[in-house]
Design a protein around this nucleic acid. Structure first.
Length: 237
DNA sequence: AACGCGCACAACCGCGGTCGG
DNA sequence: ACCGACCGCGGTTGTGCGCGT
């Protein structure tokens, strides 16, 4: 029926998330939980819509998220599950603790795309724009695909994001976190350096980040560590 | 060295389902 | 029973990076 627009688009920010936003979101969720996604951005003082916050949390910020390349076993399992479940990515993701539907979807789609372009340049009767239906894809080739993409994937993860990902992917555990936390730790030593321009977004609401530069946000590494430790299991860190 | 292309991934959009008033 | 609001899901798009030419 009269569906409300996903969010009041007035003045809401779109696009990539910044560290500050991530931290605000993490902090808010860890302290208040996420009972109401719609109200969350307001409460947290984020200029994002609730959906966006939810997506960011689920796909990226959740502490137990496992990132990095898919193992061969995982890939085979994804293929099998996709054959049985179809495009029900969330259902598939449910079988992979720590994996997100978005990640699985992306992985699968890109795998299929590359497979298609490589294997069936002519063969596909163009019945579908998307190669989604039961993939006859050979799992072995899938695996080679991912292994070939391993390096790039890792780099992507570490390059794209400058975010306190609590991932410890089984395959590439330390690539990002080390960088990130070393940055954090070094910043921690320079507490006094705290520069000025951290946007007093909503964090100002609870006074935690007001007037704090990103780097100085990360100065509170102990704080965040505590937050995480308190909130979730914080596997091997 | 510069440019273009393809890939991988993050994020957005819109719809359907569900729940509460 | 109806209506509205929220949540979750699947599909799609946008963006950045790496690689090849």
């Amino acid at each position: 029926m009269g569906r409300a627009p996903c969010c009041e688009k007035m003045g809401l920010k779109k696009g990539l998330w910044t560290q500050e936003e991530d931290l605000i979101l993490i902090h808010h969720i860890n302290t208040h939980g996420h009972k109401n996604w719609r109200a969350l951005p307001k409460q947290a003082g984020l200029l994002r819509c609730g959906k966006s916050c939810r997506l960011r949390w689920i796909n990226y910020l959740k502490p137990d998220i496992k990132r990095g390349n898919f193992t061969r076993e995982e890939e085979d399992m994804v293929i099998q599950l996709h054959e049985t479940l179809g495009n029900r990515w969330s259902a598939i993701a449910a079988k992979f603790p720590g994996r997100t539907d978005n990640e699985i979807k992306n992985q699968k789609l890109s795998s299929l795309d590359t497979l298609n372009s490589k294997q069936q340049p002519v063969n596909l009767p163009t019945e579908e724009k998307k190669p989604l239906s039961p993939p006859q894809c050979v799992s072995s080739s899938m695996s080679t695909l991912t292994t070939s993409s391993d390096t790039t994937t890792n780099e992507h993860n570490s390059n794209h994001h400058h975010v306190p990902m609590m991932n410890n992917s089984t395959t590439a555990p330390e690539s990002l976190d080390d960088d990130f936390w070393s940055q954090v730790l070094s910043a921690d030593n320079n507490n006094s350096d705290a520069t000025t321009s951290f946007p007093a977004t909503g964090a100002a609401a609870d006074g935690k980040f007001q007037g704090v530069h990103p780097s100085s946000v990360y100065n509170n590494v102990d704080y965040w560590f505590d937050v995480y430790m308190g909130a979730q299991e914080f596997p091997k860190f």
